[in-house]
Amino acid sequence: MGSPMEYNGGSVVAMVGKDCVAIATDLRLGQQSIGVAYNFDKVVAVNDKLYYGLPGLATDVYSLREHLRFRVNMYRMKEEREITPKTFTHLVSSSLYEKRFGPWFIEPVVAGLPQPTELDPHPKPFISTMDTIGCITTPKDFAVAGTAADKLYGAAEGLWEPDLEPDDLFETISQTLLNAVDRDCLSGWGAIVHVITQDKVVTRRLRSRMD
């Protein structure tokens, strides 16, 4: 068995726009070179302003997703408010670091719109990403992870520009993902894109090469 990070394949990308964020994933689940499923959604909603993606070893995708759902639900009940993107990032990070010497093989990507508060009436769109043991990076532009990460960097570097409106952001993230996963034999098999704005989330399913 090769690296656990490449065993099942799959990639996630998130991008910042003007008062909006987008997050997208491919849908492949493989066992090394064999494709097993084309409905493996690696991006999950925490609420309608916050999404996260978990590319990596598929068994850990399930385990970590269930763990985080538990923690977020308990947070929502105890705090009687929704978790903010920043707090959620730290929750994911500490969940990962808990397994410092036998890690979850996951590199999470978080994308969300913080709610305006009295202290911060105009919060900026938020994205973040982590390594497998929870070291956080909060980029200003885009975050990529998964088996197509290197190709995603190239495509995103070329296509992304500041202050994209939701429609343009959708186009940019979709082209970035599709063109990157077409160069990666472990990612692809369809994709899902979410564009989060203050008043709604637009979710679209993309068709792509099925080989």
Binding site: E66, H67, R69, F70, N73, M74, M77
Partner: peptide, 13 residues
């Protein structure tokens, strides 16, 4: 009970 409910969600989805 909230804990018990979440525990069930965790094990049985």
């Amino acid at each position: 009970s909230r804990n018990a409910a979440q525990q069930h969600l965790f094990t049985y989805d």
